[in-house]
Nucleic acid binder design. Structure first.
Length: 137
DNA sequence: TTTCTAACA
DNA sequence: TGTTAGTA
């Protein structure tokens, strides 16, 4: 019964304060990413957010992408669909998460390379922001 | 004390 | 994103 492990990883345990220390993200950022459905923490009876290990992992991935210069739109394309529903019986296995991560990492590289090489095409919105895109203005 | 939502001199 | 206000 190795499935018991997945249950623990998807179990909502820590409040936003602890997640802040674990990820070095501000509460503002953590809540902002939730608005964009990048993470879906459970809620307590008092409407307090409760995050699971997997939620923290996702936030760390998001933080990593942000640091690489990818904006919300880009992160959505790479990380979606979100593994949602912590209140229902939807449990994501570790393998599923790993495979998804591998694929998206490859896709990310393609996206970045593609956008950095080919200049701005009219009508297309850049998924890269900040310092990275400035080199190509 | 901590977290939540909403909003911006 | 930061930050503040007024609560729960």
């Amino acid at each position: 019964m190795a499935n018991n492990d997945e249950l623990r990883k998807n179990m909502a345990l820590f409040p936003i304060g602890i997640v802040m220390k674990l990820t070095d993200l501000t509460a503002r950022q953590i809540r902002y990413y939730e608005q964009h459905e990048l993470v879906k923490p459970a809620r307590t009876g008092g409407n307090q957010r409760l995050y699971s290990f997997i939620d923290v992992q996702r936030l760390l991935e998001i933080k990593d992408l942000i640091e690489k210069g990818v904006n919300i739109a880009g992160i959505k394309q790479v990380l979606l669909p979100v593994s949602g529903d912590s209140e229902e019986a939807t449990v994501i296995t570790e393998q599923t998460e790993m495979k998804r991560k591998e694929l998206t990492e490859t896709q990310l590289h393609k996206m970045l390379k593609q956008q950095l090489i080919s200049g701005k095409r009219p009508g297309q919105v850049s998924l890269i922001q900040g310092e990275l895109s400035r080199f190509f203005h």
